[in-house]
Design a binder for these strands. Structure first.
Lengths: 334, 334
DNA sequence: GTGAAAGCGCTAACAA
DNA sequence: TTGTTAGCGCTTTCAC
């Protein structure tokens, strides 16, 4: 290849990769040859020689969920800034599909590490991953010491959301989104926050108003809200475990002629853009997605480049309560 | 490697790749060795040897735009079903970034082909792509004979949307989303449909009610709508060039105390899920996204596997008009 | 500071 | 049907 037009091969490699020991003169010579021949290093060959792919995988259950697509954006940006491409995949929460990604499979070499938001895999299945695969887990799992975990403090955030509803003077609070089974840890933490907020004020959460949903989407929210309204004593406030659920719930409320928040106050979780423009706009828990994304990427790359695995960390990104119309009511417009 | 535990190497390759000529007996022997050693073929080496990566790239301007994330989902599914991984990237509409993807660059070998939704590149810049790169363009560009193009008939769809507003008896129609410059072809086609619908009924589109926006998002929609309402004679109906724009516009209308659709009817474009749950729900043009995605993937893989480039095709996916509350009003609920 | 040569682990042309 | 062997194009150890 290019060394025909000048020197040798080791040198070309050095120049292209910007290594130290090259004379200005040789460097120029190589550069000229490169330009002349329109030479482009072959990534595939480089990957094989280096035993790395320069790619990381981002594996999430659903890509059309705004929370994930907003996160995805930041992950791509962060990875690219560090010279990595992002390979993405959606699992639909299917346990087999999820397992395939973290197991020692044939695709293993395709990515140097994985950022993974599990849904169908419980804690135990998660622990059974390829020990050589650098792994960062997103969401509400706790680390078992073999991977890093990045998330927000779900219990605290949920308590905060619930307290906000109680502060409004509401007393018949419902919660939509519980998932009382092994893979529903995320949901269970939120339910815990919901209960704790009540307990902290000497109140008791009404267990019959805690509704389970298989997913956190609009449809589930709409259906759960309908079920709540059919109760003899419907709630006067609802804590939804995602903004999508909240939007679905509001949809049901409005179409039944109820006013939000006058009749029923609603608060969501995730702070997706929809919630800032919907009618009414949706109060929510806003996790710092940018920080989650960059932290996850940074930890993963550290894991990738470390000869010995770094200690497993539990990383907490900050969150805040954002109050909008669905709890505060519409602000008068001139 | 594995042949130690049985036979040779060529054979292993054959077995692993499921080629024809292998005796059952040898196959079994190899299989046993593979299992025993936990052997996994090295993708990187295979890629180099085959000169292909088994990956396709999907390049879109924004990933947090529901239209793209919904599309992305279908693309991933279609590609995976055919044994391909999807590498994705977001360009933010930056011309340089976009150019880098279709030019003959060092990342070229990383993907075997590209599905590309351009935004910052005009027709001419698009034509200047690596001729060896299999390419499928999404959106409203016309092919120059070197790539396939998949989209819907934008002029017809826009005419249909506009006619729907005229059918409601509205006569002061506005349009939000025009982009009267080289890279705004998509928008211009919609504007053309808007005008044609008027002309077909002997009416004339009001040019002062055609508003340009840099992007197709909620914020732009909200601002444009505000500008329209500040006019001495505001419109009684609005055709928005995306559902996000429509949601933004509705946000402004509602917060100014106007009723949708009684005071102003609104129709969008794309049929994203938000529009089916918003308040009011949003009438829209619904492109067949699943078909767009699978068609794009199929054509791209055909292009990748063809020794001689197949003829460039203009592929039109179907669309339909979906009428919801933002034009039809709320349907009474018992 | 630069050159030569040995892999990286697979595929595929060519033989047998 | 199966074995041998020559690359794929780069990185990198080891001399010079």
């Amino acid at each position: 290849m290019a060394e025909l037009a000048g020197v040798s091969s080791r040198t070309v490699s050095n120049v292209v990769n910007g290594y130290a020991n090259v004379t200005e003169r040789t460097k120029a010579r190589v550069q000229r040859a490169v330009d002349e021949l329109g030479y482009r290093p072959n990534v595939l060959a480089r990957n094989l020689a280096q035993g790395r792919s320069g790619q990381i995988a981002l594996v999430v259950p659903y890509l059309d969920t705004p929370y994930f697509s907003e996160l995805l954006q930041s992950v791509i940006r962060a990875a690219r800034a560090r010279g990595y491409n992002v390979l993405i995949d959606q699992t639909d929460g299917d346990p087999e599909h999820e397992r395939a990604f973290i197991a020692h499979g044939s695709r293993r070499l395709l990515f140097d590490g994985v950022i993974f938001s599990p849904l169908g895999l419980d804690q135990q299945a998660l622990a059974d991953h390829d020990p050589n695969l650098p792994l960062v887990i997103l969401g509400e799992r706790s680390s078992d010491g073999t991977f890093d975990h990045v998330g927000i403090d779900d219990v605290a955030a949920s308590r905060q959301a619930t307290e906000h509803l109680l502060d409004l003077g509401r007393r018949r609070l419902a919660a939509i989104g519980d998932q009382p089974y092994a893979t529903g840890e995320a949901a269970q933490l939120r339910t815990r926050g919901f209960r704790e907020a009540h307990a902290a004020r000497g109140l008791t959460a009404r267990e019959d108003l805690i509704i389970s949903t298989p997913r956190f989407n609009r449809k589930d929210g709409a259906q759960a809200m309908a079920a709540l309204l059919d109760l003899p004593e419907p709630p006067d406030a609802v804590f939804c475990y995602s903004d999508l659920v909240a939007l679905g719930a509001i949809h049901t409320l409005v179409s039944r002629g109820l006013r939000v928040p006058e009749d029923v106050a609603v608060i969501g979780y995730d702070d997706i853009e929809d919630g800032a423009y919907s009618n009414p706009t949706v109060s929510t828990i806003s996790p710092d997605k940018e920080m989650i994304a960059t932290t996850a990427v940074e930890r993963l790359l550290l894991r990738i480049s470390s000869p010995t695995p770094p200690p497993a960390l539990e990383l907490r990104a900050p969150h805040k309560l954002v109050i909008r119309e669905s709890t505060a009511g519409r602000v008068a417009v001139p």
